[in-house]
Simulated assay, not measured.
Amino acid sequence: MHITATRGDITEQRVDAVVNAANSTLLGGGGVDGAIHRAGGREILRACERLRANDYPEGLPVGEAVATTAGELPARWVIHTVGPTYSATRDRSRLLAACHRESLRVADSLGATSVAFPAISTGVYRYPVDEAAEVAVNAIRETDTDVELVRFVLFDERTYRVFAAVTDRQ
């Protein structure tokens, strides 16, 4: 598998699937979640509403992943995953790693071979970027998957530099 980092907008990625750093409601929010819902259009929201009504009435649990259509995005699918909120007193790295492993598992079930990831949990969930990058890249490297390309798409320069340094160590 080839793992890269790039600075850019995840909603513009031409890959099989983009990963959404969703909140548990699956109904949109801020950051990456809001951007994906806005750019992808109402079709993503309707698919998420069906998931909530039928499969996740209490919301999507942290560390799990589920796919929907990508609506108007250039990708085919959106894989929604809920990252953990950072805690200085509790190690939540296993949950963050699970977001990446489960997203790849869902990608495999879809037949996706290229996946774009954001920096899950590093926004409002306050996970330190340095720690998140290590956890994310290691989880992806350790996952048995048919995905051939994983691209981390980072919105700001600092986050991009951190992820690029970690991915370059492969």
Rank of each mutant, 00 (worst) to 15 (best):
E134L: 09
A97D: 02
P74E: 09
V62C: 09
E134Y: 00
Y86M: 05
V137S: 01
V78F: 12
H100E: 02
G123H: 04
N138F: 02
V124P: 03
P128G: 09
E134V: 11
H80W: 10
R90T: 10
T122I: 08
P74L: 06
A136T: 00
L95N: 11
P128T: 14
S87Q: 05
A132L: 07
C99M: 12
W77Y: 15
V66L: 10
V137L: 01
E131D: 15
V135R: 01
A65R: 08
I140R: 09
S87P: 00
S114E: 11
P128N: 11
L95G: 14
A98C: 08
L73Y: 06
R141C: 13
S109Q: 15
P61I: 13
T69R: 09
R76F: 08
V129P: 04
T81I: 04
R92A: 07
E131R: 15
R105Y: 08
R126K: 13
G83I: 01
A139C: 02
R101T: 14
N138G: 06
R141S: 09
P128H: 13
R101W: 06
E102M: 10
E72F: 11
T81C: 04
V78P: 13
G111Y: 08
P61M: 13
D146V: 02
A98T: 07
E134Q: 14
V66T: 12
W77H: 15
A133K: 01
R105V: 15
T85K: 11
G123S: 08
A139R: 03
A119Q: 01
V115T: 12
T69E: 13
E72H: 10
I140N: 10
L96G: 07
S103N: 09
D91R: 10
V124W: 13
S93T: 15
E131H: 14
V135I: 15
A139Q: 01
A136C: 03
H80T: 07
I120Y: 02
A98K: 06
L73K: 05
S87L: 02
A112M: 10
G123I: 03
A136V: 00
V137K: 01
I120W: 00
R105E: 14
E131G: 09
G71V: 05
S103Y: 14
T89A: 14
W77K: 03
S93W: 00
D91Q: 04
F117H: 05
T89I: 07
L110I: 07
A136M: 01
E142Q: 11
L73Q: 05
V66K: 01
A65H: 12
L73R: 04
V129F: 02
V135S: 00
I120T: 07
T113H: 15
E134K: 07
T143L: 02
T122V: 06
T81W: 03
V147N: 00
H80F: 09
E102I: 08
I140P: 09
S103H: 14
A97K: 01
G111C: 09
L73S: 05
N138L: 10
P118C: 03
V115Q: 06
A139K: 02
V115L: 11
L110Q: 10
D108P: 04
R101M: 08
V78N: 12
T113R: 15
E64L: 13
L104V: 13
T89Q: 11
